[in-house]
Write a protein that binds this DNA or RNA. Sequence first.
DNA 1: GCCCGCATGTAACTGGTTACATGATTGT
DNA 2: ACAATCATGTAACCAGTTACATGCGGGC
Lengths: 181, 181
Amino acid sequence: MGMSRSSQTELAVLGALSTQPMTGYAVRDGIRQVLGHFWHESFGQIYPTLADLETRGLISREPGGRTGSSTFAITTPGRQRLLELLRSPIQQIPPRNGLMLRLFFGRVLGIDACRALIQQARDEALQRLREYETIRAEVESDTEHAADATYWLITVSAGEHTAHAAISWADQALAALDSRP
Amino acid sequence: MGMSRSSQTELAVLGALSTQPMTGYAVRDGIRQVLGHFWHESFGQIYPTLADLETRGLISREPGGRTGSSTFAITTPGRQRLLELLRSPIQQIPPRNGLMLRLFFGRVLGIDACRALIQQARDEALQRLREYETIRAEVESDTEHAADATYWLITVSAGEHTAHAAISWADQALAALDSRP
DNA sequence: GCCCGCATGTAACTGGTTACATGATTGT
DNA sequence: ACAATCATGTAACCAGTTACATGCGGGC
C-alpha cells in the first residue's frame, strides 16, 4: 500500500471497471481478452492496485457471488480520476524489439536463421489477423456495449493494420535476402 | 558484478562491439542512432554489463584515446557467445500500448480528445518516416559496412512499413469518428 | 577561463514479474 | 473423489531508469 502503484495500472483497472463491476480476477481476464494485444496486467499488480484504489475511495468493494470473492465497482470520484488519467500524457516505453535486434546483427547470425526469424514473424502476424477477426465479430455482435464498439473497433483496426504491415514487410525482406546471397 | 545483467543487454552490447571496437559511451550512442527505433540501452545498464563481459573474457579493454577512457573490443569467445545469444529464443515483452489503452476507453475520454490522440500518432509516424529516410541514405552510402547494409535496411524497412500502417490506420480511424458523432 | 560534449561509474528507486500459499466452486 | 477453474493475496526477486558524482579535452 503506501504509495500508489503506477498510474498506468491504475488507468487500466479503473478503465476495466468503468465498463462494468467485476472481480479482480475478471479485470485481468477482461484486459487479457479484449485488450490483450495492446496491454497486460498481472495479478501481482492488480490486487495491490485494487486495495489502494479502495482506500482512496475510487472504487467500492462488495461481497461477490462466491465466498471470499469481491465485486469491485467504480465510484463517482473514480470516474473523475479515470478521466484525469486518460487525459494525462502517454508514457513512452523505451523500445525493445528482440526481432529487430537479431536481424540487425544478421551478418553474424547467418542468412538462413534470419530467414527463419522473418518467416516466423510472418506466421505470427497471420495468426494475429485471425484473432482480430474473432474479436471484431464479438465486438460487432455485442449489443450490451454498443456505445463502446466504435472505439474498440478502432483499436482492433490498429492491430490489423500493424499485422498487415508485418506481413508485407516480411515478404519484401525475404525477397531481399533471396536476391542477395 | 556477481550475476550477469539480462542477456538482452549482453546481446546488444556484444552486437555493437562486433561491428567495431568502441567506448561504452559510443555503444550507447551507436545503439541510439541506428537501432534507436527498435532498441534502447541506458548507461546504468551498459557499464555494469561491460565490466561483467570483461571479467568473463568476452570483451577486452584497452586504454582509449583520452585519459580515463577505454576502448572495448569483442574477443573470439565473445563472438561465440554473441552467436549463441542471437540464436536464443526472442524474449517477448508484455505489450503496453498507452495510445490503445486510452482509445479503448474513448467513450469516457471523449471524441475530441480521441481525435487529437490519433492525429498526434499520425504526425509522429510521419516524423518517423522522415527519420527512416535519413537513416536509409546513411546506410546506403556507408561503404565501410557494406556487408551489414542488407540486414540494416531490412530493419529500416520494418520501421517504414509500421509507420505507413500507422498513418493509414489513423486516417481510417478519423474517418470512422467523423461518420459516427 | 568557461562551457559543452565525451567518458565512466554507482546508488537508490520503481515498475513489474514470478512463485507461492490458500481456498471455494463447478463439472465429470 | 478429483481436477480444473475461479479467486485473493504476499514476498522475493529482477530489469531497468534516474540521478548523481567525477573528471578529461576541445572550442570559443
